[in-house]
Design a protein around this nucleic acid. Sequence first.
DNA 1: CAGTGAGCGAGCTTCCGCTTGACTT
Length: 904
Amino acid sequence: MVPLAAKRKKGLVIVESPAKAKKIGGYLGDDYIVRASVGHVRDLPAKAADIPAKFKKEPWSNLGVNVDEQFAPLYVVSPEKKKVVKELKDLLKNVEELIIATDEDREGESIGWHITELLDAKVPIKRMVFSEITKKAIQEALENPREIDMDLVQAQETRRVLDRLYGYTLSPLLWKKIRPKLSAGRVQSVAVRVLVERELERLVFKSGTYWDLKAELDTESKARFSAQLVTVKGKKVATGKDFDEHTGKIKEGTDVVLLSEEQARALQEKLTSTDWSVTSIEHRNQNRKPAPPFTTSTLQQEANRKLNMSARQAMQTAQRLYENGQITYMRTDSVTLSQEALDAAHARIKADYGDNYLVSRQYTGKTKNAQEAHEAIRPAGTEMKSASELGLSGGEARLYDMIWKRTMASQMAEARLRFDTVTIKADETEFRATGRHVEFPGFFKVYVEGSDDPEAQNEEEDSNLPELKENDKLGCADLEAIGHETKPPARYTEATLVRKLEAEGIGRPSTYASIISTIQDRGYVNKSGSQLVPTFTAMAVTRLLEDYFPNLVDLQFTAQMEQSLDDISMGQAERLPYLEKFYSGKEGINEQVKSHEEEIDPRKACTLKLEGLDADVRVGRYGPYLERQENGERVTAGLPPDIAPADVDNATAEKLIEEKKKGPQALGMHPEEGLPIYVKRGPFGPYVQLGEQTDDGEKPKRASIPLNYDPDSLELETAMQLLTLPRRIGLHPVDGKVVNAGLGRFGPYVLHAKKYGNFDKKTHTYTTDDGSKTVDVLTVDMDTALEMLAKSKSRGKAEPLKVLGEHPEDGQPVEIYEGKYGPYVKHGKINATVPKEMEINDVSLDAAIPWLEAKAAKKGVKKAAKAKKNTAKKSTKKKSAKKAPTKSVAAKKTSRKKSESTKE
DNA sequence: CAGTGAGCGAGCTTCCGCTTGACTT
């Protein structure tokens, strides 16, 4: 709140982030007001509802770009940004100048320009830039303002318009040819393509088998070490690298010995009783350099590898650290450390490890398309305080600790390693043993970057060999023949995908996490553990795009776009010819989409003929299914929803089609009911059913199969028990009321006096606090049920802080409650926060009603959107009702009902 | 709350980047 008698201030400074505004505000003092724009303030309309009425009829309105008039963008202030803009406008009335201090990159420059356009300032406008948030840097920046760089703004607008044209012309083609609501975009389509190509490599991959020997050897002084077979009769023994992944055989022209199991065992037999001796020893020295300080991309990768955090979790955790002033800004592509950071790290290294561990280093970024508006991610401030010194805990402590270590390590000495390679002769074979010795740990003391290969040995670990010299005799304590299979190329994880995208210059620090969400939300990718598995839909979409728009899904497309944008930002090129070439004319995307629209057969676009698979895979409305011709007849069978494309082979296909033909197989007969029990799969997962569906509308008895049971190997006994749920566990020792276990809409539960206890959502089991037992809905006993119930949050009503009175419309009480985010007023199902500066005792009924109304209006919009999905099937009826004269009332009523049912 | 693989309708879906709300279990 601005006090009414506010003195006129010198300037209004606008930055992007509120946390940054706070910090800079502290440096600039009372003469300046510092506020955040909270990101972009204007954008092209995202959806039809955001298009202003007067443009709705324009043929280009959906694009939000007037493609007939110089690609003029239609900018709108999104509803959630209106408040910010209004506040900035009000503040501007009491200052002498407007100072734009947004980030010094393409997007930041554009945000600044949009602000000046919207605020329509009557006072002078200055643009200031800084790359480090220190008092000195800020004041210097303030004294050396510049103008807004319109070339840079143009480059941003070109980027924005191109992305819109790409996305909003290709997506509709996918709706028509493959499935509604699909999407295509410059970034996501390439990301999906990368995953699909890897999946196809796995699909055609042929595994190969090879054998080798591993020896456990003793020196004369009985020190033991192990060695691997490397040559037989002077010829190299085959390893995984020597195989051709398309054939599973040794690559042509490779001169190696491929050992079969028999040969390996014969060799093992022969060598056990032969003489072993050292033929040569080699030493090799190598130094290791620390990894550069974190950028967004490397932070996400390491958090994924070492802390098992998703990109999204890492960013949310980093955001909290940033808001608490504990780390610098977390969305950056720069590896540069400021002088403040260097000083802090150097001092701490000296104090903790000594001078010989300190080396000052400045890294230079080599990331494609880096904008470098911020510094690297590092502990904020001048002291390099550790996580425990800051009193952090949980995920924040772990992430901070990693940032701290990486920053420290980046300023520490190289590690010096010595590798020893010993060659050993046994009969006509050679074995090799390698050792690693850390001669000087340097930065290893603090931090070593993680590996994508979970089996790889840690770099910093010693694996020393015993003292050996040439011609030493060795004893063979054990000789093992080991069989190996070559593995297909690994699927991408969040970490490796982010690294790939960054390396190709695709996507920006602020978007890596959301790219991963988007491709999952659109049904292009499923996550299986840490693997990102593309779906059949992804394959169909990728193939269509590759066939008809190869240059748009080329990995180089973004790099080329960036080149053009650079030219525009430097004033060496114009936006218009670039956009015209992309969109208009014979080769432009508009014409291309139109002409391909006629030639693409949707049935073909949805049909995948996979190498080595006899049946076709088709992507249908209810998911992927198999299709095959048999005696001129079409047979189909649904595929499990989350099956990986590379895991579908002829055997799996055959099994699914056979099962479909036979119809649901009875698990067995229920001995008392005399009816068969089936295992079936519905939209809510696998379930068991007793008897058949009859015509009289009577539904057969059904029960979901909890996640801890495998539907394919479910026993009849278990099925019968599931069908008898809910089950009485016994009587509660305190009040004597019944405790039950059952299956509900949200999974298995235990129930006592209207209070529910829950099983783990992912496993449908529960492990007791002392870890002594794990139970499920069929096995849970009274003691465990009581423990579960004790944990469940009380559904009992909280006491209101204050009762304001009855709502004039319906007489329902209006009350104030204390919530997690401060006090709120409650009326029925509507809750509205009490403004921060209000005292609870000052809140009156009259004051509270407008808050509730505002909240109700907001909620209604959200709920209606949500409810739409659930009632899509019935929508035809609703539409005719809409034409009735009482339209608005009818609409209100239905939306009310829906919101109740969704809440239930 | 429990399968299926086909089509009029009205109007909508969809992009990439920059940021923090909201959530009251």
